[in-house]
């Protein structure tokens, strides 16, 4: 497992590409965070994308689902801090509003 690097549970830093190739590891990492957060829900969680060099639809979906899950637990969740390229990818793929938490999903 190459996933590493988190600051704390309310400020989650993702490190490395957020893509299909790594999605299994990423899922395991986020599931762990999710379980921890469910026990003692903070009011807000921020996912820091500054150290993510690339993202694809599969990665976006996982992240969006993670954020939605937290919102379900009444945690204000968002992902930001992405570099230009990653931000453009997110925009192109249509995940901007899901990441910002603007349009809660059913």
């Amino acid at each position: 497992m190459t996933k590493k690097g988190f600051v704390n549970d309310v400020n989650i830093t993702l490190d490395g590409a957020c893509t299909m190739e790594r999605v299994t590891d990423l899922h395991a990492f986020l599931a762990e965070r999710c379980a921890a957060l469910a026990e003692t829900p903070p009011s807000a969680v921020r996912v820091d994308l500054a150290r993510v060099p690339g993202i694809d639809a599969c990665g976006c979906q996982l992240l969006a689902l993670f954020l939605e899950q937290l919102r379900h637990l009444s945690i204000g969740a968002s992902a930001d801090g992405a570099g230009t390229e990653v931000r453009e990818s997110i925009e192109l793929l249509g995940f901007s509003s899901l990441f910002a938490g603007e349009h809660p999903q059913p």
Partner: peptide, 26 residues
């Protein structure tokens, strides 16, 4: 305009991350 939506909200831990549940609207 492109908008991705999650078609469902499965339990995160049991979710298969390679499975696509996203629906796109353009």
């Amino acid at each position: 305009r492109c908008e991705a939506r999650l078609a469902e909200l499965p339990d995160f831990a049991g979710f298969d991350p390679e499975c696509c549940i996203t629906r796109w609207e353009f």
